[in-house]
């Protein structure tokens, strides 16, 4: 085998590997802009985060705009505080917006649903590091059943 053929085949080998990498990067991996590129941070305090996890999606009307980057407890009452990385493409959430913890489907994973609020002259836009003031916590199934039974008991 001549050196030239060998070089050619090694070239084919490397090209095949690059093609595989491109395939994996473009076709297989998540390449929505919301999770890569420039982001800014919003935080939100909840009473209960349910099954929310780091890297859970943040959605507006079902469209992913960011991801949860950390979950911690703060303050003397140990409130869960959730930090989210939101794509700078979506940087105009008013301070009247609401963050809720929702579940996709009956058994699906939990995510943060952001709902943009109304805008008028007195409403400021949320900046990097700001807190979303209005939140709805996760619905915990056990509490819900408890409440239901309790209300049944009162009626009966």
């Amino acid at each position: 085998m001549t050196t030239r053929t060998m070089e050619l085949l090694v070239g084919v080998f490397v090209a095949a590997a690059i093609a595989a990498l491109v395939f994996l990067a473009l076709q297989v991996a998540n390449n929505s802009d919301a999770t890569r590129g420039e982001t800014y941070t919003l935080v939100a305090k909840f009473d209960n985060i349910g099954g929310l996890k780091v890297r859970s999606p943040v959605k507006v009307g079902g469209v992913v705009v960011g991801r949860v980057s950390s979950i911690q407890l703060t303050g003397e009452y140990y409130e869960p505080i959730v930090e989210m990385q939101i794509s700078t493409q979506y940087d105009a959430f008013p301070e009247t917006s609401t963050a809720s913890i929702l579940t996709s489907g009956l058994l699906g994973e939990q995510y943060v649903g952001l709902e943009p609020g109304f805008i008028d002259d007195f409403v400021m836009m949320l900046e990097d590091g700001d807190e979303v003031p209005n939140t709805n916590s996760a619905i915990v199934l056990e509490n819900l059943i408890g409440q239901f039974l309790f209300s049944q008991g009162e009626e009966g």
Binding site: L24, A25, Q27, V28, A29, N30, N31, S32, T35, R36, R55
Partner: peptide, 15 residues
């Protein structure tokens, strides 16, 4: 097949 895959596979985490 592809879209659910894309929603779940992360560049850094998985590849």
């Amino acid at each position: 097949f592809w879209s659910v895959m894309q929603a779940n596979v992360e560049w850094g985490q998985d590849i």
